[in-house]
Design a protein around this nucleic acid. Structure first.
Lengths: 141, 141
DNA sequence: CTGATTGCAAACGGTTTGCAGGCTT
DNA sequence: AAGCCTGCAAACCGTTTGCAATCAG
């Protein structure tokens, strides 16, 4: 039995999900990609090994990986356009349950300007404190 | 001439955009809303003052406000689902031109755990360094 | 008066869902 | 054998676009 399969089996067992061929190839492909590719980019990459795979399967399995704890979702407030109307520099409190975003004064969370690697030109630094807001804690589930 | 109109005229003049009734009501409504409402929420609020306004107008004007510098866009990497595959704690470098996301080691940007206001239960802190990546600096436009 | 803006309806693009057949356990 | 998983196509939903009528400068 090849190494890759053995460890993928273990991973699936740990997270309580079934082992399928597309699942394994999807997992390996995602692990091998640089950065944080979009579902379409993942789909294109996986198609090179499984030409018949469908985009729906890619989505279903990415969600399964997130729900079962294999991966974690980035960018909680993805989905709709949000705009900054507050001119004063500040950070954000993002509720992972209701997705509401509120402001947090800058002084509450000091941060030092960093020197970036490889010539990345910094415009601004955005800090999101992700958690559960008082309302959602009170109204559980 | 009412106060609100005078200052909105000035704001539009500063940013080089025309003054329209829907524009002003939209601006005032957005300013008065708590947090960072979605376009749909803004639409519903504006409809109370201009029942005939269309959602397309809300979108067009929110974009105009962003382009002309009245407001600023939040959440650069909104649009498609992105997943975290890296188990090691780290931050993100987000290119505002090509939207690519890469990882930045934790130690490059030290951060202290804050005490949050009003019983917000913190799960994690997400830091995005937003700017322009070397590739996009090289390939201007 | 000229060009920008509005409201409508249709188009779009990313994502989700329902379903019949096939695979995992 | 039972149920989960796959691929397909259609549905969805937030957003954008084309257009004719109207408004601002």
């Amino acid at each position: 039995m090849p190494d890759g399969l053995r460890s993928f089996r273990e991973l699936c067992a740990e997270h309580g999900i079934a082992v399928t061929h597309q699942r394994q190839v999807l997992y390996e492909t995602m692990q091998s990609m640089y950065g944080h590719p979009s579902p379409e980019e993942v789909f294109d990459a996986v198609k090179r090994r499984i030409p018949s795979i469908s985009l729906a399967t890619v989505y279903k399995n990415i969600h399964l990986f997130v729900e079962s704890g294999v991966f974690r979702e980035l960018s909680i407030h993805h989905g709709t356009l949000r705009v900054e109307m507050n001119k004063v520099p500040h950070h954000h409190l993002v509720c992972s349950v209701c997705k509401r975003i509120s402001d947090l004064a800058d002084e509450e969370l000091p941060l030092q300007a960093p020197s970036m690697p490889g010539g990345f030109l910094v415009e601004r630094i955005s800090v999101d404190v992700i958690g559960i807001c008082p309302d959602c804690q009170r109204r559980p589930n």
